[in-house]
Design a protein around this nucleic acid. Structure first.
Lengths: 336, 336
DNA sequence: CTGTTAGCGCGTTCAA
DNA sequence: TTGAACGCGCTAACAG
């Protein structure tokens, strides 16, 4: 059996209340007794029981984290950053994987609430805005990360997808490309919709007509990359550049490009989205629009910390600026 | 404020004790009242408070999970599988990232203990066998995953690394290769040591002399791949096959191979270790020794469940068989 | 500044 | 079979 506050009190010759105050850092206590109690506690190896404390104070120092999966780079970064930063501050994180499924998410939310989490960082499915709002009203701050929920007044920290896709497309345009293929996520996702919009805008500003044959939308998976690359690269005339704004489809695209014997960037410029360590290890190192996953994760943590510290729910949307990382996969198109 | 057992008791017209018994499924209770209470509880939307229950029963239905990081495929798979399976059984998992650092791990273990976890699945750093043993003696089962700790009597579930490397090497040998390069982890890790041993054994059994110039050991990182590939491929005569038994270095190797203009498998057979979705999307699809990360994770869960269910600590070591997945990156060497 | 007392929400004696 | 009372370990009144 672990030591309790009573043991500390006994060993230090004070009451449990005094011991509690000494350890919890209450202001109303004699410095001498405080240090004395602290020493005794350390000496006998006392460690407070967080459960008992939580039952009393309604502060568990537990926070919830829900993500769709652990495969996606951004989600993984979010999980790692949230875990490490919160742990350093004495919080423990309960990880839950929703599989982007509304029913599972609903169940998770309820369980997390039962466990008395102090706060929640969630990549929401989007379907449980109601439950998220309920959490907020119970006094549990929730930060929506990566995805936005329309029907919930929540702080959310998102990537600047429109801007990122716009910048990526402009980069290709400035290199001289006019036939630019795009592989992107489905429009049901915020990121898919916004990236498509960014691409469209850049093209129209440059006076380049939109060619539907150059655009392929699909879910976030390798298969989308092969289908998309085959379709788009088969257009006539073929594109001189391909913007893969659907991270999961990157490998699929790479395979088609290799199979077709296309050299990058000589025959085709390739621009990816969401940086991941291995992009720089490919040959050639791949240029990419970095959506700032780690900055996003850190900001989500900052916001949660503020809220935990008493700040009100601003309902504000925070956007992490994207950054174009030029490596060696893009260049001007060959003269034709 | 959430509903308490008292509310249920009141609404059902019974005492809290009866309500508790009805919901907890104690045997000593009238069937009629049990169903009545259950209905009332469901009707008013009562949900038991796990903290209060844990304080009383010393069972938190929380389990700890520690991994070195979330980048490594095996660790990630472990995290995902453990989380999903345990959650389905009503457990929540507290995720902690040790960064393979002994001090951090020690701190994590203590905190997890404070939080009253019922069990622990850990990819250990190896330095805190003592604390792990203490946990076991406190009655908290711990399963060591992926890595083994010598100085702790723990159940561990590991990959069959010797066997895997042996099988991989034999495959290359049977294709006719005699100059087989190896890039592997440092011998301080169990996996590094065992894989090297498997390779060595296969070679010696085949009567092929070991050439140190063909072997490169390094930490699990892309850099190791480039250094290793450059060194090993530069040997004279050069290898006709390269066994990359260091997963993290795969991308590094790929880059060197591409930069040297080597065609796979025409000029060089390539065999990787630890399967990951994108290996099959490369061109050509890469052959690999699959170490069975998901089976390993599932077995770790099974074992923990058994232990949670009262089984004694067998101290046994479980090995997950490796599997050679032949795709298209290996073939017989060219005649020379 | 410190000690005494009363719960937080449960499960579990002990009687009835 | 049920109810009343107690306590898990801790913090928050309320006195002193």
């Amino acid at each position: 059996m672990a030591l309790t506050l009573r043991d500390v009190a006994q060993a230090a010759g004070v009451s449990v209340a005094t011991a509690s105050r000494a350890l919890a850092g209450s202001g109303l206590i004699n410095q001498a007794t405080r240090t004395h109690v602290a020493q005794v506690a350390a000496a006998i190896g006392y460690r407070a029981n967080p459960l008992a404390r939580a039952l009393k104070t309604r502060k568990s120092r537990l926070i919830g984290l829900t993500v769709h999966n652990l495969e996606n780079t951004s989600f993984r970064t979010l999980a790692a950053v949230v875990q490490q930063r919160m742990q350093a501050l004495g919080y423990q994180v309960i990880l839950s994987i929703s599989s982007d499924d509304a029913a599972q998410e609903r169940e998770i939310l309820a369980t997390l609430l039962d466990h008395g989490i102090d706060g929640l960082i969630s990549v929401p499915t989007g379907a449980n805005g109601r439950q998220m709002t309920d959490l907020e009203q119970t006094g549990i701050p929730v930060i929506s990360a990566v995805r936005h929920i329309d029907d919930a007044h929540l702080e959310s920290v998102l990537a600047a997808d429109f801007e990122g896709a716009y910048a990526g497309t402009r980069h290709l345009l400035e290199l001289g490309h006019r036939r630019i293929g795009l592989i992107v996520g489905i429009s049901e996702t915020t990121s898919g919709k916004e990236r498509l919009a960014g691409y469209t805008r850049a093209l129209s500003e440059a006076g380049v007509a939109l060619d539907p044959a150059l655009i392929h939308q699909g879910r976030y998976a390798p298969e989308t990359g092969v289908e998309g690359a085959e379709a788009v690269l088969g257009a006539t005339p073929p594109p001189t550049a391909l913007f893969v704004a659907n991270h999961e489809s990157s490998v699929g695209v790479l395979r088609v490009v290799a199979d077709k014997g296309l050299r990058v960037p000589d025959d085709l410029s390739l621009l990816f989205y969401e940086d991941t360590p291995w992009f720089q290890w490919l040959s050639p190192p791949m240029s990419v629009v970095d959506s700032g996953a780690s900055e996003l994760a850190n900001l989500a943590v900052e916001r949660l910390l503020q809220r935990l510290d008493g700040a009100a729910n601003s309902g504000r949307e925070f956007r992490i600026g994207s950054r174009l990382v030029q490596r060696a996969s893009c260049r001007a198109p060959k003269e034709s």
